[in-house]
Design a protein around this nucleic acid. Sequence first.
DNA 1: AGCACGCCGACT
DNA 2: GTCGGCGTGCTC
Length: 832
Amino acid sequence: MSERKKQLYADIAVPTVPKDTLTYGVPGEMREVLTAGMRVVVPLGRRQLMGFTVNIHDQPPDFAVKSIQQLLDNEAVITDPLMRLCQWMHQYYCCHLGDALKAALPQGMDVDSARHISLRNADDLAILRAVGKSKIKRDILRILGTGEVLSEQDLLDRMAVKSIGSQLRELQFHGIITIESVLELPSAKPRTALFVRLLPEWRGQEKIVELCSILERRAPKQVNLLTMLWQKHERGEAEILMAELLRLAKASSTQVRALEEKGIVEIVENELIRAYLPLFEERPKEFALTGEQQSVLATVLPAIDAGTSSPMLLYGVTASGKTQVYIEAIRHALSLGKSGLVLVPEISLTPQLVARFKQAFGSLVAVMHSRMSLGERYDAWRLTLKGEYRVVVGVRSAVFAPVMDPGIIVVDEEQDSSYKQSDADPRYNARDAAVMRGFFENIPVLLGSATPSVESWHNADIGKYRLLRMTQRIDQARMPDIVPVDMTEARRMRRVRGSLSMQLLDEIRQRMQQGEASIVFQNRRGFAPHLECNDCGHVENCDNCSISLTFHKDGDMLRCHYCGLTRKPPVVCPRCGATEIDRIGSGTQRIEEELQAALPEARILRMDADTTKRKGAHDLMLTAFSDGEYDILLGTQMVAKGLDFDRVTLVGIVSAEQSLFFPDFRASERTVQLLMQVSGRSGRGSAAGRVLIQASVPTHPVFTFVYNNDYDAFLAQETESRRNLSYPPFTRLVALLFSGENEEQVARAARKYYDELRAAPGFFTMHPPQPALLSRLNKRYRYHLLMRVNKRRDSDGNALRTLLQKVAEEYLRSGHSRSVTITIDVDPQNLM
DNA sequence: AGCACGCCGACT
DNA sequence: GTCGGCGTGCTC
């Protein structure tokens, strides 16, 4: 018994610190409570940082450890399967473990230390000696002389110099100032409000009447309050929001406090849940499950019962009722006491979809969405962890949602590229992460799509995924008629108005006469993507990026869609002084203008990133369109997916080629998927749908798959082409991107990596480094290396990660500038 | 990633 | 002597 307890150590993953974990001592008072998955505050150098407890052990490391400073949670916020998922991401996507873990939490839960600088009591002589002749030091002390406590940045802002770091250090060394590291609280916290309730002994009609008669003369407001409280109590509302009570009773809080002092009411602080409430509503539809839906469920439900990891690909044509399959699967999971997770692409997390899940599962549903506020997201996450939400519907990052005991994970539109995070570490694909999570949780994962990715199709083909098919539209709706419009021919015959063919305009007009609606799709916002001098051909480009500026007619502005730069369009050509500057190409703004000019009566709703910026704009627009307030819904990608309106019987695609000639190996796949998805918006009700596809070369072989509605044939051909060209799914692509403000340094870094990598064992192939397609972005030059990894020779990505680590070390050792940033993107979606 | 430290040229 | 711009090394 008397044996001293062994010292415990914890391995902590700290975001952005380039070490898997750091080892800290576990203080005695934490040894009983600390578990893996909890967040802690640890000292690192002069900073205090948030870290994740990964492992607790009693192996003393061979260096002096510091101790954990503070616990941030009293239970694990990273459940065991999520910890394993993050470990997998760390190794597969070559990112820091801490960054993967941080991605698993909503924003705003981070803590960081800030350095607070203040003046210390010191004698004049010491000050004089420390300051010497430095003007900067004298200024610092003058500012601090007011007794204020400031950060380095605050000080800097009030001075006319660029840096004060060394001066601060010397002043601190001489004991003149104090620099204290202070923890800043996380910005996300539960929101609370005051509530008022009658104490139990006063809950009775007679007692209230009696009280009121006593109070009547001297305290009429208190009588009002009591009456209000009693009425609410009678209606079953035991507690009433203080603010509301005051408003209703026209009283002030002093009067409530008075009642509290008399021991009649009680004031309590309760949490207010910030829930995301969609503004869109729709009458629920009545329907029975189709035979195909039933037979799919006959496979899915037993898999939920069995509780074994099993990925499935649900390949069902548009309008075949996939959403209802998801709902039934989750209903089943709930009936077993489990919960469910549904991932949807950013763009199709529409109010329509949310409404269907809310109808089915009511208050059990949490929505996780990037348009929600920090507080809303925090509450959704926290109450999911507490087990109060049992169904989570969310975008990419919801793959980390802490659902208690999930029974199934659904990934809708699994081919969608918004599942891939490409702008920050971890650069993960949420669809693949979902499959891995299903593996760690031992549950089935259902990947749904009308147009599966070549990768998932291949996985089904080789038996990694189980294939489930639905080939019929519900309600016997026919597939729409898909009709090419030859724009070259139409132009020759003068049957066009700007970018729109007379045929499309005629058919839209016809729908308007029949009281039906049309969707017009143009995947480009703004008015015109280029401004070009008619005389010399000069194009207005972004100053920071190698891209042309898009002309926006609202506000008469040029904008860079990559870095956000805005500038007034030039009146004369800056190169040759000519005054005729052409607006080349068409975005949604121009199409809107052309539609309106050709169809003056048309009520047009334009939906793109520019018109839906305001919170809730999306919902309101779709509600209005659904209610028949518009004839034409014109928009970018956001009208291509998930929308389901019976009124829509015509879909027009302005330019089918737009995505086809993109230099990306997925260009054909993206084009076919997009065209088929947009087509699916048409004819969902009883009326037959029609799709007009405008193209300059309508005979391009890729389009024939769309005209014939034969996605199977496309998959077969595209799979062969990928095999021949050694592209995914037959290889694993890894893109290394080198970026920095100095082009020569960037090119040299890329070259150095290339040479180092080439010397390594050949489990991959690659070409020499090249400037990226977007060769400059935000003032930074960009070069890339594309590795094609042989999946058989490095199935789990371990060889790749080891090699990249080795090369990075060698790169640093050989004295290279740190002004070049290197990012690793495994399974990139966009080769930019 | 920060942050400290050391070195060096420029200014005054 | 002071300032400011790098490169380099370290953080449990």
